[in-house]
Design a protein around this nucleic acid. Structure first.
Length: 575
DNA sequence: GCCGTTTTCGGCCCGACTGTTTTCAGTCG
């Protein structure tokens, strides 16, 4: 029973308790507990077994959740969850996924009409039986019929890079609207989350109708979900939701703060306000006893300032430690910025499966303001990528030596390799050849389905090889399409600390591996992080910004990231 | 269920939109 398992169970408890109409604060307590456990830098199991440690000393974990953690670690089960599950008809959970159908209505349908499946629900609507119930009418029947398909589809989130494309399209479309005075995309997109559940647009305008008409005319609009005076939601590209909010200019900052979230961050901000005798909504900050007289709201800075806080970077707004930092001034980590990056240490060329030469990759990197890169083509095991054997590697490195000699601006290409960790454990390239490299990345491409023990041993074994400097994409996950290997990351992190090795944050928006939670833990353990694009062509280098955003979300500073170090600093560390 | 520079009990963020009601409950973000 590892931390993500326990967190998932608490999330499930929260969902089920919510479905049963439990106290909303109790539900939130389970959610907060799940989040806290996901972000814990040690294993709950280890804390339970260690007499000197107390789970209750961690924030959001009280007596009850601590007890449940102990039960889970010791027995692998949670009787309360099993009881709740047994008491909850499956169809209830499914029905609440229909937009507009919440717990109360789902419960009424289930108990009063005896609905057991979504199919039966559909029939009941078609036979106009639903409208007979109190609180239901013809429109609700139609709402349910329309929403059934959405409920069947898995809740879909899109990757940050896909969201960026959609945002760009909407931005281009809305730019043509003269009624818009100010516009910002908020929500999880602004916070730079790896996946986005919906797009949130904030607009300042005197003419709400003109803005909403313009959005409604956007290509790809499937339906208008709601449209009121200040708020509109549409569905685009099949099932993706876009929310629009129109506010007056003097409220723009407060609305941006509110609309950027996260929900947890906003709860923390508003709780703090209450303790100060203030209240915050999307229109501004005001005194509790004079709620309509706003004392701040035009800018976000003003809103935070009114609460005695420094402005908080959107990437940090997740209800973790950001308010404590912002309150104590100068405690917020100085977050990594794209401009700090001077190297890219994982890329491929035509020698393996890349599309460009060493020279082309180097030129492109130089144009991006980098001072050094590492060429790291695949090793021979990756046959489908035309991986290099020892002889071809040595030949390539000779070319790199020649290339470096010709550079008069100090630009340097490091001789590297992305060396496979073979299924049985050893590395794909002989040690005496690896010893010649400037930079060695080890990675898993085959045998991803191995057991936890096997795959963890392979990666730890690679870290113990004196020639290896980092592990590429340490969990192998592909966002939305492939789960991580069953690797014990805590053990990998400990090995990295002991061996003084780095770990990669692969910047590809499909990977972003390590994940944000993983990064938080790795950084706390002091492991230097390498952010690399894994570019297979010169255009592939542009994904660096996604890696930087992910690092910022984990609170990483310049010092913690190898790619910000000058060449001589890096070489010294390598030696 | 958690938490405390008012509190170990009694709070817990705040508001918009819709449908079904005639003043509001339910849902959502």
């Amino acid at each position: 029973m590892n931390n993500p398992d326990i967190a998932r169970i608490f999330e499930e408890m929260a969902d089920l308790l919510e479905l049963h109409g439990e106290n909303a604060f109790r539900v939130r307590a389970y959610r907060n507990g799940a989040k806290a456990i996901m972000e814990l830098d040690e294993a709950v199991a280890a804390i339970v077994e260690d007499e000197s440690k107390d789970l209750q000393s961690y924030s959001s974990i009280g007596k009850t959740l601590a007890d449940k953690c102990r039960t889970l670690v010791e027995t692998g089960r949670l009787p309360q969850l099993e009881k709740l599950k047994a008491e909850t008809p499956e169809v209830l959970i499914k029905m609440t996924r229909i937009p507009g159908l919440g717990v109360k209505k789902a419960m009424a349908l289930q108990t009063e009409l005896g609905i057991e499946t979504l199919e039966e629900l559909k029939e009941a609507c078609e036979q106009e039986k639903v409208r007979a119930l109190k609180g239901f009418a013809a429109k609700t029947e139609k709402l349910i019929l329309d929403g059934l398909e959405i409920a069947e589809a898995a809740s879909q989130r899109i990757r940050l890079d896909q969201a960026e494309k959609l945002v760009h399209r909407i931005n281009e479309h809305l730019k043509g609207c003269d009624a818009i005075d100010q516009m910002e995309f908020a929500g999880s997109f602004r916070r730079g989350k790896e996946t986005i559940g919906d797009v949130d647009i904030l607009v300042v305008s005197q003419n709400h109708d003109a803005v909403m008409d313009q959005l409604e005319a956007f290509t790809g609009v499937v339906s208008v979900i709601v449209r009121g005076d200040t708020k509109m939601s549409i569905r685009v590209d099949e099932q993706f939701q876009v929310d629009l909010r129109v506010v007056p200019a003097e409220s723009f900052g407060a609305a941006l703060q509110y609309f950027t979230g996260s929900k947890e961050h906003n709860v923390a901000v508003r709780s703090r306000a209450r303790k100060m005798g203030l209240t915050v909504n999307e229109y501004g900050v005001s005194k509790l006893d004079d709620p309509y007289n706003y004392i701040a709201g035009k800018t976000e800075e003003e809103v935070y300032e009114a609460l005695g806080l420094e402005w908080v970077s959107p990437e940090l707004r997740e209800g973790r430690k950001e308010l404590t930092w912002a309150e104590n001034r100068n405690e917020t980590p100085e977050l990594l910025e794209l401009e700090h990056i001077v190297s890219d240490l994982h890329m491929h060329t035509t020698a393996s499966d890349g599309a460009n030469s060493i020279e082309q990759m180097a030129d492109a990197a130089r144009e991006r303001g980098l001072t050094h890169i590492a060429i790291t083509d695949h090793s021979k095991r990756v046959t489908m990528a035309n991986g290099l054997d020892e002889a071809r590697l040595l030949e390539q490195w000779k070319k790199i030596d020649d290339f470096n000699k010709k550079q008069d601006d100090g630009f340097r290409v490091l001789k590297g390799v992305e060396c496979d960790i073979l299924e049985a454990g050893p590395l794909d390239i002989a040690d005496e050849v690896l010893a010649e490299a400037d930079w060695v990345i080890a990675s898993v491409h085959y045998g991803q389905k191995q057991s936890r023990q096997e795959i963890t041993d392979r990666i730890v074994g690679a870290l113990e090889n004196p020639h290896v400097h980092t592990i590429a994409h340490p969990t192998g996950r592909l966002i939305g399409s492939r789960p991580p290997y069953d690797v014990d990351l805590h053990t990998v992190f400990q090995a990295a600390v002991e061996q003084q090795k780095s770990l990669e944050l692969n910047a590809s928006p499909r990977r972003l591996d390590l994940s944000e939670e993983n990064l938080l833990q790795a950084a706390q353990m002091g492991i230097p992080i390498t952010i690399n694009t894994d570019a297979h062509a010169v255009t592939g280098m542009e994904v660096m910004r996604f890696g930087v955003t992910q690092a910022r979300r984990a609170g990483l500073t310049r010092e913690q990231v190898l790619n910000t170090w000058a060449l001589d600093e890096l070489l010294e560390w390598l030696s």
